[in-house]
Amino acid sequence: MSKIPSELKYTTSHEWVRDNGDGTITVGITDHAQELLGDLVHIELPEVEAEFGAEDALAVAESVKAASDIYAPVAGVVVDINDAVLDNPELVNSDPYGDGWLFTLRVEDMDVLDSLLDAETYASSVDEA
């Protein structure tokens, strides 16, 4: 059974979202997603200060098996990226919610986070799949 921390928000495309409480969110892929992908070998991240709309593809996670797009959970501007995963993509496998985080977005309207899935809803969507 994959880990789904209760304090995070989720998307149907298997990103997790942490509200940092300062108008920014941090995003990564879920434990379930990294399990599906298998060993990650290459990550592409967006440029800092790049702006994206909700559901825009802005990063790529490539495993030995396949390349998978990663989408902006909500609209925002990239304020930070996790350089560590560029050199060590396996961090996403070993610690998807911690050292394997991908990027931080500044979000204008934090209310849109309410449209994301809570842990329970995400867990049931994973069970159905």
Binding site: G38, D39, V41, V64, K65, E90
Partner: peptide, 8 residues
């Protein structure tokens, strides 16, 4: 396809 980790 693998038993845990393809890379390993």
């Amino acid at each position: 396809i693998h038993y845990g980790s393809q890379l390993q």
